[in-house]
């Protein structure tokens, strides 16, 4: 009995050691980034052997980042763009997914396959036509110009369609018996039931919108409309780049993503597990 117990304890210890090692391995680069951001100007950040702990930790790098470019303005721009993108993307993708999951009409599968096939076209290829379209619509230097190309994504439609398919059809039928129309079924029955997928889509869309570099750069010609990634890019100049500032900037830009994930984490993991069980 005792032997069995001790062997299970050893097993546990080994397991935890392994988990800790993997954790460190995963967050190691992040810790390195943090340590670089905290190093003061007198330290060689490329010294060999490398030092993890800064000799004189300082927060001044974070302050400096905000002076390099109009930080608050760019933060506002990024927030507006990402916020709008997420709201519209989740809304339109689930609206588009509803008929694909629930209604029967001619060419449904063709439509779905066509939507999916757009995932295979890289954005760089679409960029010029989308740019010309946006110019003609007068969307240059507008928030909407940055948001619109991302308001529906094939990935989102696909994700929401699969989510709706997992909801039993009987729920629709009983709602219809009670006199609900299609729109009400979508809004009152299906949407509350696919919250985990909505959250997943929210996080994915937010992360990609928050970090998007190329499209805002192309569509914006006015430095006041730049988003945070474009601003952070200014930290590395043509002739000089101070890695402390770059690290500090990278951390600042990561915070919102981490916060959003922490807030929505409960649902996110629920969603992932649900998907795993039901295939």
């Amino acid at each position: 009995m005792a032997a069995k117990k001790s062997s299970s304890i050893i097993k546990k210890i080994l397991l935890y050691l392994l988990l800790i090692a993997i954790t460190l391995f995963m967050i190691g680069p992040f810790l390195w980034l943090l340590s670089t951001a905290l190093k003061s100007a007198s330290e060689n950040i490329f010294q060999y052997p490398p030092k993890l702990l800064p000799e004189e930790p300082t927060f001044s790098n974070f302050g400096k980042v905000m002076d390099v470019f109009p930080f608050w303005r760019y933060l506002l721009n990024s927030t507006i763009v990402s916020g709008l993108t997420v709201i519209l993307n989740v809304l339109f993708c689930s609206l588009a997914a509803y008929p694909l999951a629930r209604m029967n009409f001619k060419g449904k599968n063709t439509v779905f396959i066509l939507i999916l096939s757009t995932m295979m076209i890289p954005f760089q290829l679409l960029m010029i036509p989308v740019y010309i379209l946006s110019l003609n619509l007068g969307l240059q230097n507008t928030y909407l110009g940055m948001v619109l190309p991302h308001v529906t994504t094939a990935f989102g439609v696909f994700l929401m369609r699969q989510a709706f398919m997992t909801v039993p059809y009987e729920l629709d039928e009983s709602a219809r018996m009670d006199g609900a129309n299609s729109f009400q079924i979508w809004w009152k029955v299906l949407m509350p039931l696919v919250k985990p997928s909505l959250v997943t889509l929210t996080i994915f869309t937010f992360v990609s919108a928050w970090g998007d570099f190329l499209w805002p750069l192309i569509i914006v010609n006015d430095q006041n409309m730049f988003t945070l990634p474009l601003g952070l890019n200014m930290l590395s100049g043509t002739f000089t780049s101070d890695w402390r500032l770059i690290a500090a900037g990278a951390i600042i830009s990561m915070i919102p993503v981490i916060v959003i994930f922490l807030l929505l984490q409960r649902f996110f993991i629920g969603g992932a597990m649900k998907g795993a069980i039901k295939g």
Binding site: L214, D222, M234
Partner: peptide
């Protein structure tokens, strides 16, 4: 005046020229 990040200046100018 517009200052463009070096990373994708080539893409931006190419897009601009082609449109």
């Amino acid at each position: 005046w517009l200052d463009v990040p070096a990373a994708d200046l080539d893409k931006k100018i190419l897009t601009a020229v082609s449109s």
